[in-house]
Amino acid sequence: MVDMKSSVDVRPSASRVRTKIDWLDSKHSFSFGPHYDPANTHHGLLLVNNDDIVRPGAGFETHPHRDMEIVTWVLQGSLVHQDSSGHSGVIYPGLAQRMSAGRGILHSEKNDTVGVTEPVHFVQMWVLPDEAGIDPGYQQLEIEDELLRGGLVPVASGMAEHDSAIRIRNRYAALHVARLAAGSSVQLPDAPYLHVFVARGAVTLEGPGPLAEGDAARLTAVGGARVTADADAEMLVWEMHATIAS
Rank of each mutant, 00 (worst) to 15 (best):
M1Q: 14
M4L: 15
M4R: 11
S7L: 05
S7W: 04
D9L: 00
P12K: 04
P12W: 00
S13N: 14
A14R: 14
K20R: 13
D22Q: 11
W23M: 12
L24I: 12
S26L: 05
H28C: 09
H28F: 07
F32K: 06
G33V: 14
P34D: 00
P34F: 01
H35V: 08
D37V: 02
D37L: 02
D37Q: 01
D37N: 09
H43W: 12
L45G: 03
L47Y: 03
V48M: 11
V48W: 01
N49Q: 09
N49C: 13
I53D: 04
I53F: 01
I53S: 12
G57S: 10
A58W: 05
G59P: 08
P64T: 04
H65F: 06
E69M: 09
E69K: 10
I70K: 05
I70Y: 01
T72A: 09
W73K: 03
V74C: 02
L75N: 10
G77Q: 12
S78C: 10
V80H: 14
Q82S: 13
Q82A: 13
S84I: 10
S85V: 10
G86N: 04
Y92H: 08
P93I: 04
L95M: 15
L95F: 10
Q97E: 14
R98C: 08
M99F: 05
A101C: 03
R103W: 02
L106W: 05
L106H: 07
S108M: 02
E109C: 11
E109K: 09
D112R: 04
V114L: 14
T117G: 14
P119D: 15
V120C: 14
H121K: 15
V123L: 13
Q124F: 13
L128T: 07
D130G: 14
D130Y: 02
E131D: 12
A132G: 10
P136N: 01
G137C: 04
Q140P: 00
L141M: 12
L141E: 03
E144Q: 15
D145E: 15
E146K: 15
L148N: 15
R149G: 06
L152R: 07
V155I: 13
V155C: 03
A160G: 13
A160W: 08
D163N: 05
D163M: 00
D163W: 00
S164F: 01
A165K: 03
A165T: 08
I168A: 12
R169Y: 03
A174Y: 11
L175R: 06
A178Q: 11
L180H: 01
A182E: 06
A182D: 04
G183R: 03
S184P: 00
V186G: 05
Q187I: 08
L188N: 07
D190V: 15
A191P: 04
P192Q: 08
Y193G: 06
Y193V: 04
H195S: 13
H195R: 05
V196E: 04
V196R: 00
A199Y: 02
L205A: 04
L205I: 05
P210Q: 07
D215K: 11
R218P: 01
A221V: 11
G223Y: 04
G224C: 13
R226W: 00
V227S: 10
A231T: 10
A233R: 03
M235G: 06
M235K: 05
L236C: 06
L236Q: 07
E239P: 02
E239G: 04
H241K: 11
H241E: 09
A242G: 09
A242P: 00
A242R: 10
I244R: 12
I244Q: 06
